[in-house]
Design a protein around this nucleic acid. Structure first.
Length: 142
DNA sequence: GCCAACGTTGGC
DNA sequence: GCCAACGTTGGC
């Protein structure tokens, strides 16, 4: 089981919109970056991820699960671009802001801090646990 | 709204 | 295969 972080501008695709899709989930399309695509190709069904709002909010707001393996991105006719589908799992009780993450020395190596422009990123198990704790969030049993 | 950082593109 | 130009992202 691996952990990830998906970043979105709430004005483009928000956590509320993601939740509205329910268990059907939604393509994480529109990624045109090789690193991000390669991470999506590594994802397995059931992998979990944080849903992060960039721009105005800059906070981890939700937890998602990979519900379809990498497949061609329906918004591109260029076959280089693949994407996974993700579905909302639960809210992060207390949003974890970028400021909090930056202020925590245990999280200084997070990709979010070191490479803020990467829109799909790996998260280590330790980082996952720490951010969940900061968010006062306990993962519900599957 | 600005600007720095970075990734991609295309010409050579 | 290199590198300059350009576009985009995201934090401030």
């Amino acid at each position: 089981m691996a952990y990830w972080l998906f970043k979105s501008e709430p004005s483009t695709w928000s956590w509320d919109q993601q939740k509205a899709k329910g268990d059907a989930g939604e393509e994480w399309d529109g990624v045109r970056n090789y690193q991000a695509r390669n991470f999506m190709r590594q994802m397995a069904l059931g992998d979990l991820g944080f849903f992060y709002h960039s721009q105005s909010e800059k906070a981890v707001v939700g937890i998602v699960e990979v519900c379809a393996l990498a497949h061609p991105d329906s918004t591109s006719d260029d076959d280089r671009w693949d994407c996974v589908d993700i579905k909302a799992v639960q809210d992060v009780a207390t949003h974890v802001t970028l400021d909090q993450i930056k202020a925590d020395p245990r999280l200084e190596d997070m990709v979010l801090v070191k490479n803020s422009r990467l829109s799909v990123q790996p998260v280590t198990k330790d980082e996952w646990t720490i951010v969940l704790a900061l968010g006062n969030t306990r993962l519900l049993a599957p």
